[in-house]
Design a protein around this nucleic acid. Structure first.
Lengths: 145, 145
DNA sequence: AATAATCTAACCAGGTTAGTTATTTATATA
DNA sequence: TATATAAATAACTAACCTGGTTAGATTATT
């Protein structure tokens, strides 16, 4: 299962992708666009920064901004930053969870299934998402706030 | 995440698929083949029976046997019997979890990703699995036990 | 110095998972 | 009919995970 935290983080990145790449925006304000609980923002922002995806600046007129091209950030990457390796089952993420993994037919099915899933999340980028958001409500950000 | 219970149940069905379709086998013994904790067997068997996949008989020389052709039982079906609807995210399984689902671009990505996953689990059948097990250690069941 | 903003870390309630335990019911067989 | 066998049911538990809260520390601008 993909956690809410990963989902919130993805939305923060998408929101940033639709804005000026050079300016710093208040993280709380950016997060609020997609209804992220403001108390949760610090840990999201902190992780994104450690992951090298955003740059942050403290103090007044500080905030966050994108550090990587949105087209180069896959959803998988963000998800794994928060949730760790995506795993359909325990045996897929913990190598020594089951000794039979190497030849277990069921393991092979899980593995194949997960590949399909991951490749989808690998191909979807923050840029795609930002464009989709923008297509739905174009220019909305320009008027308000 | 696919639960261990679903996985145990799948293995029980696969084991049955490799045996005589008409005979009743002790559920504990069948389950033991894939190292299912014997205390867990009752609730697995009970669910499989309610799901219409196996038939059970109480008393001495009772046990369980397959009721459905292994080629007609998808892994998805068994998984959902135990874990409920497979869901990458909450918003995919609970229709009213998020009001924006109908047009949310992120929701659409999750949905597409999950489709890929489900179609894989839909196509994989107990028969496939049983054959794969048999290919790995053919005839093993005939000698021992 | 005051203030605005991020950063850090500990904490907590609720839910889920995996498994245990105990009891009951049905039935074949001696 | 008594007994043993095997499934059925249900309640319970420990450990873990998730989503979110709280409180304070740090940093930079004005």
């Amino acid at each position: 299962m993909i956690t809410k935290k990963a989902e919130y983080a993805i939305n923060i990145l998408a929101e940033l992708a639709g804005r000026d790449k050079d300016r710093f925006y208040s993280s709380r304000e950016v997060a609020a666009v997609h209804a992220t609980p403001s108390n949760l923002v610090p840990q999201l922002v902190s992780a994104l920064q450690k992951g090298g995806l955003i740059q942050s600046a403290r103090g007044p007129s500080g905030g966050i901004r994108l550090l990587v091209d949105p087209g180069d950030i896959s959803l998988r990457q963000v998800i794994e930053l928060f949730d760790g390796p995506v795993g359909l089952t325990r045996c897929l993420t913990q190598p020594d969870y089951c000794a039979k993994s190497s030849y277990c037919p069921l393991h092979r099915i899980w593995s194949r299934t997960q590949e399909k899933m991951l490749s989808e999340l690998e191909h979807a980028t923050i840029k795609d998402l930002a464009e989709a958001y923008n297509r739905h409500s174009p220019g909305e950000k320009l008027e308000k706030e």
